[in-house]
Each structure stands twice: as C-alpha cells, then as structure tokens.
Write a protein that binds this DNA or RNA. Structure first.
Length: 478
DNA sequence: AACCATTGCAACCGCAGCCTT
DNA sequence: TAAGGCTGCGGTTGCAATGGT
C-alpha cells in the first residue's frame, strides 16, 4: 500500500513537517492514511509516555492527528504483539462462538483473542458474513447452533459456551431470553394479517424484533405469553423436547443477523453490513433446522442464489394478488386442489425449511395435519435476518392461518367459539367450506366477515390483543 | 491494456459512559 | 451536582488492491 498523506489534510503542513514534528497543533488535523513518519512519532511518544492521554499526543509530539486517531492507530497497528494476517482456524472458530454468544461486542471478543483487535475482528466478521450470504451458507455452522441449543437446554438459565464470558450477562438473563412455551388453543384471528402485503412490494417496517430483554415490547411479549398454541398436530417437529425449540432469545446463535441496526423501510432497504446486536434486528427464532437455511441476502438477494432460485419469493408476475397466488404461486403449487397441499419441494423448503417427503413437508407423512398445525404457524416466526425470508415466513403464516380457519370453521359453522379446536377439517371438506361459507380461505379479505367473530367474547378480545401484537411486530407501516 | 465491479481493510464518525473539576 | 473532557465502542465510509470482462 502506498503511503501518502491524503488530500484530507486540511491546510496542513507538509509531510516533512509532520515527520520532523514541526507540524505543531494549530487546530488543523490530518486525516486519512498514516505515514511511516507519523507512525514513528506516535510509537516514540507512546514509548516515552505510555498509552493514554491521547489528546496530549498532538500537543507534545507535533502530530497533527486527533487523539482518537492516535489511539486507533496505536491500538490497531502499532501496539506490540499484534497478530497480522489471516485468522487461524482456531481463531475463526472462537470468533464464531464468541459472536454467537456476544453479538457485535467486538471489544469483548478481542479480549478473548490475543493479538487481534476489535476492528480486525469486526472486519473479519463482516467480510465473512458477506461471503456467506453470497454463497448461501449459514453464518453459524450447524454445530454451533446445536451446541448452543444443547447447552441452553441443559442449563436453560445460564446458557453458555464452554468459553466463559463474564460480560455476556446483559442479555443472558434467563427470564429475558427464554421463550415461553405456548400452545394455541384457538385459531388465530385472521385480522392479524390484515396488513400483510400481497403485492410484490415488501412491507415497510416489517420486522419482528426483540431486545436484549427478549421480545421487543410488551405487545409482542404478550403474543407469547397470552396466546396458547395447541400442539396437537405436530408433536414432534416443534416439541418441547426438541433441542432447537429452546434457543435463547437474545442469543445471537442461529441468527444470521444481517439487518442493519436501524433497518430502514423495506423499500429503501440497505441490508449490507450486519448489526447483530441490535435490539431492532433480532428476530424470534424457533425450531430452526440445523441445516443451512437458504439466504436471501439484501442486495445479493436480487441475484440468483446458488441454492435458491431468485424467483422463489417473488409472486408470479401474473399474480392476481390472492393469497394462493402469493403464498403458493401457481408454478409452485403443484395443484390448486386443496385436497392436495403438497408443494413444489423447492418452494416448500424455502418456506418452511422442512425436509420434503412424498407426503408433504413432514417426514412423518401427516402433511395435511401438519400444515394445519398452529405450532408451525408461530414456528415460522423465525429468528432470521433476511427480510425476504421474514416475508416468506409471514406469507407462510397467512397460509397456515387460512388453513386453521378452515379447520375451525368446519367445526363451528361460521362462529368462532369454544368448540373443540381439535376438530379440524379433513382436506376433503375444504372445498366444501369454501363453497358454502362467506369467506374463502385463500382470500384474506374475506376472512373478516362479521360472521366469523362474536365481538363480545373473550376470544374476540384475545384476538384483538393478538392483532395489536402483530401490528406491533410488523410495524405500523406494514 | 483499459475499464469496471468487487472485496477487504484502514480510518473516521457519532455516541455513550466514565472521570475530573 | 452539573459541565466538560477523555476514552472506548460500534457503525459506517473511503479507498487501494484484486479480479473479471
């Protein structure tokens, strides 16, 4: 690299002045690349006076650099015992584990990696994330996810890696990160999804958020505390015995974590560098498969992914905007007959991350039942980074809610009540319901027929709360 | 060889917390 | 106790190096 004092020098003395120390501080500071002469001056100063008091460097050494710049230069380049060059495999592994646990706490991570600076680790990580996004690889290796999951399960109140990091407590308070176990006992309010877009335009402000304290706010927290999901359809996939069910909220494992801190509106989204620690960027994550999840990375998502075709999350160009078209584009839905809900395997995997079997999404073969499972519904609110994926999850959610409504509707003749929620539809009844009722399960705009809800019931109030929760989650602009 | 896009790194910026007065 | 300065941290930007066409 060529050393030069850049033109950022604002009316600064010449480089010779800098080197000779004659560039006395006059309020004019040099910016840009450091020269060897400047390095020498700084090194000499620190050797004589020690680290710290960086603002005095300019005063006493003649460097026309601000104290911050001096500190940074010393810490990142001149300090003895700094390692240079590529990270070793051991370092990489440690960084991954540390990041899974700490998030973007670069300084803390640097404390665990002798010779590496926070800036170096940060750059390494950001570069790594970009690379992995491009190649569709998971940011965290499955074994890291599993390890974290296992350890959190073994010791759910003090989930730790083998690396003991005393400073990680800020989000590892058990009460903060443990996902409350929940069941859905009643179908979800269809109006929860009023704002779910069905156009190609992604929603503004869409995003599920949590904070170091767990879920983003009382509203979203209430979603999990108040709403009871009955796991009667899919006991295995999301059972409480699954190690992947109890991923600590707040842990950064299992998130690719690529939302910017202040994720702008989707329309102008800039999804470049990650900001994993951001309280606004973490998504609720459940039941993630250990297998790599397809990535739809920000700007890269526009380009074809090696794993997932670029069109998968795009509604068909000729979509009519109906749910069916959005959730299951015609070319992805193998059949429009509701009797056969099996999807194109590729599409299904994108949506659900479930292994595809001849019977459908589940290895258990209970495809229809599992599709109707409310576990799956909220299980799809994943702790993910890619908004595209979130959108796809939301679409999937709509799909599932629709099916749940079919389910419920079948047993309640148009009124949501306390009827046995387990009484659900057989696929052969779906078309019949669609034909005989005032709403079409595949059309959200028909979900809100007055006949669906009895407004004075406790259920209706719960639905209202749930709706508010989802509104909070998705953002008012959604 | 020239141009362009991408990548990776170094440095800067803004903010927050701490310390001193 | 408030104000100002210092320091450290995390996010962002700028640019040289590199690779592809």
């Amino acid at each position: 690299m060529e050393w030069n004092v850049t033109d950022e020098i604002l009316e600064s003395p010449s480089g010779e002045d800098l080197a000779s120390g004659e560039g006395k501080s006059s309020g004019i500071l040099t910016k840009g690349q450091w020269t060897p002469a400047e390095d020498a001056i700084l090194r000499d100063y620190v050797e004589k006076h020690g680290e710290g008091n960086w603002n005095a460097v300019q005063k006493f050494s003649g460097l026309t650099r601000c104290g911050k710049s001096c500190r940074l230069r010393w810490a990142n380049h001149l300090k003895p015992n700094l390692k240079r060059g590529a990270f070793t495999p051991e370092e990489v592994e440690l960084v991954i584990k540390l990041h899974a646990k700490l998030g973007n706490k670069w300084a803390k991570m640097a404390a665990e990696l002798p010779g590496r600076t926070d800036n170096e680790i940060k750059n390494f990580w950001n570069t790594r994330i970009k690379r992995h996004q491009r190649s569709g690889l998971p940011i965290y290796p499955p074994e890291v996810c599993l390890k974290l999951a296992e350890e959190s399960q073994q010791s759910p109140h003090s989930a730790t890696f083998s690396i003991d990091l005393p400073s990680s407590h800020h989000f590892m308070e058990p009460s903060d990160f443990m996902i409350p176990e929940f069941k859905i006992e009643r179908p979800l309010n269809p109006s929860l999804f009023l704002d779910i877009p069905t156009s190609k335009e992604p929603p503004l402000g869409l995003g599920l958020v949590n904070t170091p304290n767990g879920l983003c706010d009382t509203a979203s927290r209430s979603l999990f505390e108040n709403q009871i999901i009955h796991a009667h359809h899919l006991p295995e996939l999301y059972s409480s015995n699954s190690p992947l069910l109890c991923i600590p909220l707040g842990s950064h494992a299992l998130t690719n974590g690529n939302l910017p801190t202040s994720a702008p509106g989707f329309g102008s989204v800039k999804l470049e560098l990650p900001s994993l620690q951001s309280s606004e960027s973490d998504f609720i994550f459940w039941g993630a498969p250990a297998s790599p999840r397809p990535s739809f990375a920000s700007k890269d998502s526009v380009a074809p992914s090696p794993q997932v075709g670029p069109d998968l999350l795009q509604p068909a160009p000729d979509t009519d905007g109906l749910l069916e078209s959005v959730v299951c584009p015609p070319n992805r839905l193998k059949t429009s007959n509701l009797d056969d809900l099996s999807l194109d395997p590729e599409w299904w995997e994108v949506l659900c991350d479930q292994p595809v079997t001849p019977m459908g999404p589940s290895a258990n073969g209970n495809s229809t039942d599992e599709l109707l499972s409310a576990d799956v519904i909220l299980g799809k609110l994943t702790h993910e980074n890619h908004l595209h994926e979130v959108v796809s999850n939301i679409f999937f959610l709509v799909n599932q809610v629709s099916l749940c409504l079919c389910d419920f509707h079948a047993g309640n003749e148009g009124k949501i009540s306390d009827a046995d929620p387990k009484q659900h539809l057989t696929s052969s009844n779906l078309n019949e319901i669609r034909d005989s009722c005032e709403w079409d399960p595949w059309r959200p705009d028909t979900w809100f027929n007055a006949a669906l809800l009895s407004p004075e019931t406790e259920h209706a109030r719960e639905y209202q709360r749930l709706q508010e929760t989802i509104s909070a989650i998705c953002g008012d602009d959604a």
